[in-house]
Design a protein around this nucleic acid. Sequence first.
DNA 1: CTCCCTATCTTTACATCGTAAAGATTGCAT
DNA 2: ATGCAATCTTTACGATGTAAAGATAGGGAG
Lengths: 242, 242
Amino acid sequence: MARTDTKGVTARSPRPPKKTSPASRAARRPAIAKTETPYHHGALREALLRAAERVLERDGLAGLTLRAVAREAGVSHAAPTHHFGDLTGLVSELAAIGFRQFNAAMASACDTATSPLDRALARPKAYVAYAQAHPGMYGLMFRTERLDYSRPSLHEAAESSFAGLANAISAMRQEPISGNALTIEQGAAIARAWSMVHGFTMLLLDGRLEDILERLPAGTTAEQLLEAILKSTVAARMPTST
Amino acid sequence: MARTDTKGVTARSPRPPKKTSPASRAARRPAIAKTETPYHHGALREALLRAAERVLERDGLAGLTLRAVAREAGVSHAAPTHHFGDLTGLVSELAAIGFRQFNAAMASACDTATSPLDRALARPKAYVAYAQAHPGMYGLMFRTERLDYSRPSLHEAAESSFAGLANAISAMRQEPISGNALTIEQGAAIARAWSMVHGFTMLLLDGRLEDILERLPAGTTAEQLLEAILKSTVAARMPTST
DNA sequence: CTCCCTATCTTTACATCGTAAAGATTGCAT
DNA sequence: ATGCAATCTTTACGATGTAAAGATAGGGAG
């Protein structure tokens, strides 16, 4: 254990001679064991991201710290710095992964839909389903102030997610959306759909909908509540659907 | 300055004799100055809450730490512990204050409305307006995992906020809402309204609506976007309003 | 009126975190 | 082969939350 950051070890211990003996590490890894943690990991960046996702799912957003991720990956606590700069960097790259997962889930949900009403319900339901399946990741994507949207990967993934939403609204209104300009009605339609689903998701993940759910007929699930919301909304807004 | 937590002072300094001389403090406060920080503050709890609100508005959610609040109030960093237990306690009490402010703002907004359409628009607009005027507080109330809703003050204030929402929906649908049971339609109406406004607010505070706003006709404000959303929603849902 | 008890506040201590800086190691180009 | 640069580890430091022990004062019991 050359790693100093193992949990529970006092950092203020009286330290040995100033210069660490160069032999100490080599002695433990005598040129035979390549499986033993080599000094140069080779693919640390990806390993750290995988570790971060594991930590996020296991310990939640609060547990997602630089040092915890380094521990999970089995490297020294300062190793992530070189690949991500700081916590914001790591978290932003992880959020980009989340957005890509999310986009993939949305796309596959749209494929399975047949009727136009199904198409209208499929996306929001997939949206909430993703958030429920990956609450930590969703929280990371939408609730963290420590996200740097100037990072290309995150910007791109989030932008793509937004484009998917705009396209869905465009399809539902049966009018094309010009890339750069929006009418106030189009903007309102997009913002409304997004606000509704995002708000519902946040309230659900925060347990704030419990008050409503427990007053509904016994056994009513969040999905059913969402569906009830969507159906009345869509019925009032879809053009001439029987 | 008997306070050790003044920013920028190394905590690891070689400390003087084990026992602090009891005269040191008395010498600086020689029974004359009652304005000089007395050992017993008298109303520290309220002073800490006021300080916390100041810190929150000045430095945002990230700056709202126990020690920062103690500094702002001019007491030792451990003083808040006695009154709030831990950070969750302080933050929860502050959130309760926020909910009460919020409820008051909503109530006064409803008073000024005249026409039924105004009544329908007044609440959501006041909701977003509050969040924009107090972004830190709103974030504290709705985005912090460190809230303990089992605290009576917070539970009560949040409950009252929810009741206000339910009443407004009840009035708009022109049907009374029985205290304990809800039909699925009623629940959907409440959850939809709340999700929409909450989601819009979150996205707005997070700057996620900028993408939409800058594509709208130049100079369109968030309020106008919200109004466009609300008008189409209400028009589709209000019973026989011209 | 005095004395002690208890609530209130301060000091001290420590584990943890993010981050900076310097040292160690290795791959790779020259 | 050799030296440079990228990668990883050590060390260090300020900040935070929280626990525990010490200091102070207000107020009731005698």
